[in-house]
Design a binder for these strands. Structure first.
Lengths: 190, 190
DNA sequence: GTCTATACACAGATAGAC
DNA sequence: GTCTATCTGTGTATAGAC
């Protein structure tokens, strides 16, 4: 029986799930190690400290959204409606299938007034999301309303994730995502 | 020189500020005691444990919103526009003057997937907010759209508080509150 | 009502055997 | 690469003097 090899990516995938649900401060190194069937000592062989695990976890999660969600905004041959609809479906699935809500929103609220350690990673996620939405809506909305429309959608989605977790009911997120689709065809924007 | 007397309300007011900024788990009993110039031992004379401080802090904060913000929705002699406008102004001031964003949103995101301890107190805040908005909008919006309109406003405001803290810019909250006023006079709702 | 001192658990992190 | 054992700091909470 050879020794089990755990890849850096395996560790991060597992740690993302735990950090997202329990938060950064409440998660202990023992929590992270146990989830992989490792001891603390073995875990520290792979990562030098908790901060580094968290930073790379945020980066890996942001990268997933870049590739699986935001990339849809730049695909050739899709209408703006199709792009936004596909993004909504995947976003819904992502936030409902795996508990813990939005890893990035959770982390900024938890840490913003304690330390700035993770602000760059969190900011990168929101900037990529904003850019994708701006790309989709730029042809449908007057330039002077564009930025606020995109801001509004991001606020609605993030806020609905809070309500979803409060009421333990994913319908809140579903309705917010559905509303974002209606903003593509508002008469007032043409 | 008599011994200094610290009231339960004083302790709670101070603790609310710290819990809101640092979160529940990251806040230590030493943090709470130090802020009042007390030692841990003295602090424990007033509250039997951390959980109780948090519960009463949430209750006191919710009570403040009930009296100072949500009560406006039921005041005689104000138009719906005036009610919502006054609520917006106070809400903005409350969330901007004191750092840490929304105590209730922070706490539900931090604790929802770890324990249910504070869910009743947090739920009470959101229910009171929802009820106040329903009261204001009930005369302006068709009954079949009423619930979703109120949901949307709460999601937008909470989401904008996240963006406000991410970008360290209160304009995000201001714009979300201003949008809520426009929903009172949307032609589609009449 | 506030203080010092302390008990006990667990946190993050490291050393060294296998 | 994983383990056990350990170091050090800090957490919640309590006991008892003043």
């Amino acid at each position: 029986m050879p020794l089990q090899k755990v890849s850096r990516a395996d560790i991060l995938k597992s740690s993302i799930r735990i950090f997202r649900q329990r938060g950064y401060y409440r998660t202990s190194m023992t929590d992270l190690a146990d989830a992989l069937g490792l001891t603390k000592g073995a875990f520290y062989h792979h990562f030098k400290d908790k901060k580094t695990v968290m930073k790379e976890a945020l980066q890996m999660s942001a990268s997933w959204f870049d590739r699986k969600v935001f990339a849809i905004a730049y695909q050739e041959g899709l209408s703006d409606q199709e792009k936004l609809s596909q993004i909504s479906v995947i976003t819904y699935k992502a936030f409902v299938d795996q508990p813990g809500g939005c890893f990035f929103a959770n982390t900024i609220l938890e840490t913003a007034h304690v330390e700035d350690t993770f602000r760059p990673e969190i900011m990168a996620f929101f900037k990529a999301w904003e850019k994708a939405l701006l790309h989709i809506f730029s042809g449908n909305i007057a330039p002077e309303n564009l930025n606020e429309q995109v801001e509004q959608i991001m606020a609605e989605v993030e806020g609905s994730i809070i309500l979803m977790q409060l009421h333990q009911n994913p319908a809140y997120l579903k309705k917010a995502l559905d509303r974002s689709l209606t903003y593509l065809s508002l008469p007032a924007n043409h």
